[in-house]
Design a protein around this nucleic acid. Structure first.
Lengths: 203, 203, 203, 203
DNA sequence: AATGAATGAGTGTTCATTCAT
DNA sequence: GATGAATGAACACTCATTCAT
């Protein structure tokens, strides 16, 4: 079947992707059954396969679409802006992502934990390019004395790690925090701001 | 005679757990077939089931054993020591864990990403207790002005996030770094030391 | 208006049968998907089913129509003609059939190989009657000493076998002959003429 | 699973191939369900797949084994023997094949009718070589004046066609002959002997 | 007359687990 | 203890056919 662009096609495809995201981000690729996706989407199993030619295709479609969104915050850093403002803005944006798109974050994490068998090309390509661009920017700021002299790659890694942790490890956080923090992401944002503000201060 | 059998049993059980760790940490619970474990362990599939009554049992055994090890570094923090030394030591210990036990780290991460269906009791129990103990320690240090006033829970989360990232997301790191860093964990350790040293300085 | 509709209908039905013949004669009944027929016919799958109520109906329609054509050469043998001329003419006609209608021949062969589940009535009926008529003719010629005394049924079988072989087993022939014979049917015709001419000579 | 050579393995494999031959030779590859084979073999469906890794593998195994047997009679022609004796012997051997192995013959016929997608390499290879060898033999006999000057390739084709017809088209024969011939293969053998004896006489 | 959408009943294949020795 | 053999329960995917327009 050729991909049509009728309204009904677009809508159903969206519904399927949404259902698939819920399932895949919870149980991984192999742990997700087409039945589950179908049930959540409110469609029959063959009807799912009418829109996407296989489970694999749904998964890949999801990952590719996710990667695009994933890279946006990094692209948003302004080389002409103030280093601290920009980096705090980036951290803030990433935290908002963890709040709004925890499932997307988890899907991405699962894929990478599995060795990114279906994503390695994209990681080596567009992600690396974007990181390299950002690293250059950070180095320029450091050379100008506006940012502490730290390894820029690992700075980026640490931001990813800390912010995505609020989506990926939320189960663990809930276990540890119990009910004492009604909004861990807000608290975490404040904490990370302080940590990175002081940690990146050029003195 | 009985002793000898027991020793053989212990050894085989160990071999199975090791093979299972490799498989589960790479492909998750559902993505791992008993065949794979058997092949890596060098045993037949029914023989695996002679030692462990089911795939599920192997997985749970692995998780429980892992949790014990997992909590050790946290237990190692000395309330009577110097805050900075202790925290830097903890970070250092966690980084060594990521270097020496990346598979264990990934298995843990996968389980939590899946909502920790087989681990939630332990998380709510021993982990929470240990974290609460540590939090109290941190608060005491803060009250004494020996540590920056930050949220102690999120401080712990950020240490977990950044250090485990080197094990869990190593695939992504390799993609981004290419060959330019022969030892990312060493570089990362140095970076994290600086970040947390400055970030936690009470001024 | 009605006439025009009927003509369109007839045309479409023809297009479908032609497409179905190509598909069925290549892959058999079960090996052919309605999709394939639809694609070759240039129609949508439901539209095919608008003209024929099912895959089975298309197949049966094809077979019945084929049988009519199939029997024509046999009916063309003239009891008053010269035995050799008539039989050579029949062989010749059958060879022309293999040249012009290899697909039809193969479809027929496939059906009989499968035990003719959809054709047995016709085989027992009109085919048998026609063969019996021809056999009587042959016997008369033999009694008159104008044809070698051989079993007339098996004579007919041997003509069918040898001539249809050029359609049904053309794949094998091409493999064996390679490119050395640009027109195997012509060569075969000459061979068969000699074989049957000498073989049927009453001395 | 590696192919083992225990007695039970060999026996079960044989049982499966036999059941598969019955099914495939009646309904073709696509028309045969694994269930049928399993039922005839008296095994469960997964157990079939324990011995052969897929339906396809069973089919190919069958074809390859068949081809070997198939070529034997042709190899049996003795270049030093009397042409008529040898050829009559070959025809006789082929007729015995049609009597004893009609299913094998039909499977082969079905495969070739479908364009021999799984057999073309073998046809182009060993079959062609063997036919070429026989053709040379026939040509030598013709040059010596011991065999009628006819196209040797088509002579072989005509023998194949007529003899295999008794296996492949037996359904049709039964329809035409009714009960009047208790042993059509015997009658056919006699007929073919006469036809080819006279037809191949060098005068 | 035509077709995009939808589905029930398969269909080959997988896999943890059990059986028998 | 160990393993070749066997299987029930899934599971992704297929396909003729039906539905709705």
């Amino acid at each position: 079947m050729v991909t049509k662009n009728t309204r009904i096609q677009r809508e159903k495809r969206e519904v399927i992707l949404d259902a698939a995201l819920r399932a895949f981000s919870k149980n991984g690729f192999q742990g997700t059954r087409l039945d589950q996706i179908a049930a959540v989407a409110g469609l029959s199993k063959p009807n799912i396969l009418y829109y996407y030619s296989g489970k694999d295709v749904i998964y890949r479609t999801l990952l590719n679409r996710l990667l695009e969104i994933w890279l946006q915050p990094l692209e948003g850093i302004d080389p002409l802006g103030d280093p601290h403002t920009e980096i705090m803005g980036y951290i803030s944006a990433k935290m908002e992502f963890s709040r709004k798109f925890p499932r997307e974050s988890r899907l991405f994490a699962i894929e990478i934990l599995n060795g990114a068998p279906r994503l390695s090309n994209e990681l080596d390509g567009s992600l690396k390019a974007l990181v390299d661009r950002t690293v250059k920017m950070f180095r320029a700021w450091m050379d100008e004395g506006r940012l502490a002299q730290v390894d820029p790659y690992h700075l980026i890694f640490s931001i990813w790690a800390t912010t995505q942790h609020y989506a990926d490890f939320s189960t663990q956080m809930r276990s540890v925090l119990g009910d004492q923090d009604p909004d861990p992401i807000a608290t975490g944002s404040k904490f990370l701001e302080e940590l990175f503000f002081k940690g990146l201060d050029p003195r």
